[in-house]
Amino acid sequence: MTTSSTIGRGTVIRGSIRGEGDLEVEGRVEGVLDIDGDIALQDSARVRIQEGVLSGRAVSIRGAVSGSVLGSTSIVLESGARVVGDLSAPRIGIRPGGLLRGQVTTGDDGSSPPAARGRAAPRGRAPQKSATTRQAPAVAAPQRSAPQRAQAAATQRAATADKAAYAEAAATTAGRGTSKAAPAPVMPSLRKGQKGQLKKRGGK
């Protein structure tokens, strides 16, 4: 029988956490986190993976994670989640307000480590997903944010009519340093090229 574990809000662990059973993290973990059980990172959780990947069964994230995440059944980024690293699981969910900078790999091969980058284009809706999530780091990379936002918009068929307006809005909101850097007339051609390129490179 396994019991569940909790890393409380006032607790810092530097080193490795391994074993079985469910784990809830409200505090800080720096090092290794490898559990055969569900992992819940609450909004106060700060996890920095320094070796390998954060590995669990069903991984739910509301806090901050630096490092790649591997879920043997699923990963869910809830609102408030901030992840810098790759996600890999059979099922991945990103709720509105969840922020991600990294590669997303869903599907049957989700159990392979995220380190296995650069293979053939992920099938299904993986490219769309990553495109959507790439909105998140827009603030951090203003010079690339407008095309990425535009691409995300392109995936939303309903928004076709006001694409230009959306792109403009994206440029305004995202381009902190480079306000209105991307003039609207240039956007359509840039968007098409960018999209094709992204598809060929498998959502990278």
């Binding site: 396994t2 080193g15 391994r18």
Partner: peptide, 17 residues
């Protein structure tokens, strides 16, 4: 909420709280 290290968990390193 306190910190609980469950019976099948192994922590190697430094725990401060």
């Amino acid at each position: 909420m306190a910190t609980v290290i469950g019976q099948d968990i192994i922590i190697e390193g430094e725990v401060s709280s």
